[in-house]
Computed example of a mutant assay.
Amino acid sequence: MILITGATGVVGRETVRLLVEQGAKVAAVTRDPHAGLPAAAQLVHPDEVATLDGVEAILLSPRAVGATAAALLDRARETGTGRVVVLSAVTVQYPAGLPRFRQQFEAVEDLAKRSGLDWTILRCTDFAANTLAWARQIGATGTVRGAYAEARTSTIDERDIAAVAALALAQPHHAGQIYPLTGEQSLTQADKVAALSEALGRPISFTEATPEEIRRGMLAAGLPDEVPDRLLGSLADYAREPGPTTDAVRRLLGRPARTYATWATDHRAAFAAAFTTGGPR
């Protein structure tokens, strides 16, 4: 059995789907009994994880497990789990943003390395799915308003992360490996907005605002301080120096990483649904 924490996140959900398609027995950790996961996956409430036996491998999502990571890994070792695959961040290897966020991922990596399990670490750059946060303002105004228009990253399609995770969970020869996962195209925020405009067939522009204006807007929308701190801190650094670009996805999957333009085309419906009546055309 393969245990997937964060099973309803964009990476976890796709990893569950891929593993089920490959015939693996999957336990998906979720609080939602109607999570819309494949019928063949066993849904496991977080409180029930400690009762599971026969777990061969774990996908560990730090944001999903929080402070319970150490206990989960201790239990895994005691019950004979063989390996753990950790979803981490590329900032551990290529520092950007506020140190405290990088240190959170470093701490979970260290737990995995000391766990006694075979470990594989996936250090990921920013997810393409993060730009779904733009959908509402695109729908209402045809404009994305943000800070640091020229911040440049090699955004990764979360489906590529899931494909690598599925490999590492199923194949023990990835033990002891650290993979920095990025897309292969370094794009500014304005570049991504242009790709969305092309995919949707609608004019969409990027309007630059000051970091403080964006921070106030996010807090006014009810987001916790951590969200603008995480976003604006990394964007400020990537405006000065582009984030890393690697070929790890190509090497591991035997094909190029999906482009952001492909992701935008594949997710047109999510953005198109946000357009309001009488909105920009």
Results as ranks from 00 to 15, higher is better:
5 T>V: 06
9 G>K: 09
11 V>R: 10
13 R>E: 11
18 L>M: 09
18 L>V: 15
19 L>K: 12
20 V>M: 05
21 E>P: 13
25 K>Q: 08
26 V>R: 09
32 D>R: 14
34 H>D: 14
37 L>P: 00
38 P>M: 00
41 A>E: 05
43 L>H: 00
45 H>C: 00
46 P>K: 07
53 D>W: 03
54 G>M: 08
57 A>C: 01
58 I>F: 11
63 R>Y: 15
63 R>W: 06
66 G>I: 14
66 G>F: 06
68 T>Y: 12
70 A>T: 09
70 A>N: 06
71 A>Q: 15
72 L>W: 13
74 D>V: 13
76 A>Q: 02
77 R>Y: 11
83 R>D: 07
87 L>D: 07
88 S>E: 10
89 A>C: 11
89 A>I: 03
92 V>L: 02
95 P>H: 09
96 A>P: 12
99 P>Q: 07
100 R>Q: 11
101 F>E: 12
102 R>K: 11
103 Q>G: 06
106 E>P: 12
107 A>R: 15
109 E>P: 12
110 D>C: 01
115 S>N: 03
116 G>K: 02
123 R>S: 13
126 D>P: 10
126 D>W: 14
126 D>C: 03
132 L>N: 02
137 Q>M: 15
138 I>P: 06
140 A>L: 15
142 G>Y: 00
145 R>A: 01
153 T>F: 14
153 T>L: 08
153 T>A: 03
155 T>K: 05
157 D>C: 05
158 E>D: 10
160 D>P: 05
161 I>N: 05
161 I>C: 07
162 A>E: 02
163 A>Q: 13
164 V>G: 13
167 L>E: 10
168 A>E: 05
170 A>G: 09
171 Q>D: 15
176 G>L: 04
180 P>A: 14
180 P>N: 12
183 G>F: 10
190 A>H: 05
192 K>D: 00
199 A>N: 01
201 G>D: 05
202 R>P: 02
202 R>T: 02
203 P>W: 08
203 P>M: 03
205 S>N: 05
208 E>C: 00
209 A>K: 03
212 E>W: 12
214 I>F: 01
222 G>I: 10
223 L>Y: 01
223 L>S: 03
224 P>D: 12
225 D>K: 04
225 D>G: 00
228 P>D: 13
231 L>S: 10
232 L>I: 07
234 S>Q: 12
237 D>Y: 04
238 Y>Q: 07
238 Y>H: 11
239 A>H: 07
240 R>E: 14
242 P>D: 06
247 D>R: 10
247 D>I: 08
254 G>N: 11
258 R>N: 09
259 T>E: 06
260 Y>L: 02
261 A>D: 00
263 W>L: 04
265 T>N: 12
267 H>P: 14
268 R>K: 15
271 F>M: 00
272 A>P: 09
273 A>G: 08
273 A>V: 11
280 P>Q: 11
